[in-house]
Design a protein around this nucleic acid. Structure first.
Ligand SMILES: [Zn+2]
Ligand SMILES: [Zn+2]
Ligand SMILES: [Zn+2]
Ligand SMILES: [Zn+2]
Lengths: 137, 137
DNA sequence: GCATAAATGGAAATGATTTTCATTTTCATC
DNA sequence: GATGAAAATGAAAATCATTTCCATTTATGC
């Protein structure tokens, strides 16, 4: 079932979504979390959908523009996408084994907000990740 | 003149640096701030150095491995490099005009440290950037 | 139905980064 | 100074995500 936040945004949008956009939202909803355009395309293909890679990129771009999807970057620079509206959190990643812990970012949120206000920036988002070696490595 | 911190690190390194590594450190020192591999290559070429692009990539990779250079990402995913040892700071970047403000990250440092301790991670670093629209845009 | 605009997808183009591989340089040893 | 192994180098080719082109299909208003 579609998340409330997203549903609301979609409803608020004047324009009706294209079929592709809705498909992408559905996959992102189903998989939860981050995925690259290529991965999302593969998933859809595996499920029998003949959607083209170009369309996947286009749909994701449009969803990002409409603030329905967040765009982030993997460490290698590849773009990854996730639905907005999920609980916002950050990551603690092990440089060696890749183990990842989702962590609260209350302090970050406050920091970002404060800084944005101080310098007159609006409509701000932020990225914040911690990299290190986990206890096992 | 080479920054103290870097000089120290270089001295501490058992192995002697390759000529290319030293060249890259010199350019990064001279230009200060961030630059992509391609940009650094162009700068060197412009200055008459016939260094190959491959070597630039290799040198940067090796410097990153040795913690002498930091690797970050532009918004489009392109890798950018800078010398470590500069005063640690974060960025407030305008999504529209690209204007950048360097900001203090005291809160972040504390947050990263706290989280790392809580989950038993050591040798941690972090990334944290804020993106938004500046007052002019 | 018809005309027009929007959506779609395959193929080709782009552009950063990596890989391959033959050549050159460095360096220790004789 | 010669010599051979190991490290460094760079040109060209390969990768791979992403974008651009363009022809075809689909949706929409009349
Ligand atoms: Zn680990
Ligand atoms: Zn946050
Ligand atoms: Zn601006
Ligand atoms: Zn910091």
């Amino acid at each position: 079932m579609m998340k409330k936040v997203i549903q609301k945004k979609i409803t608020m949008m004047k324009k009706v979504m294209s079929k592709s956009n809705l498909k992408l939202i559905a996959v992102l909803e189903r998989t939860g979390g981050f995925a690259s355009a290529q991965e999302l395309h593969q998933i859809l293909r595996r499920e029998g959908d003949g959607i083209g890679l170009t369309t996947v990129y286009r749909a994701l771009q449009s969803l990002v523009d409409d603030k329905i999807v967040d765009l982030l970057r993997r460490e290698d620079g590849e773009a990854i996408y996730r639905l907005c509206g999920e609980t916002h959190h950050h990551h603690l990643v092990c440089k060696s084994c890749g183990d990842t812990v989702e962590i609260e970012g209350g302090a970050i949120e406050k920091w970002a907000k404060t800084m944005a206000e101080e310098f007159g920036y609006r409509d701000v988002g932020h990225t914040a990740e911690i990299f290190g070696l986990c206890s096992k490595c």
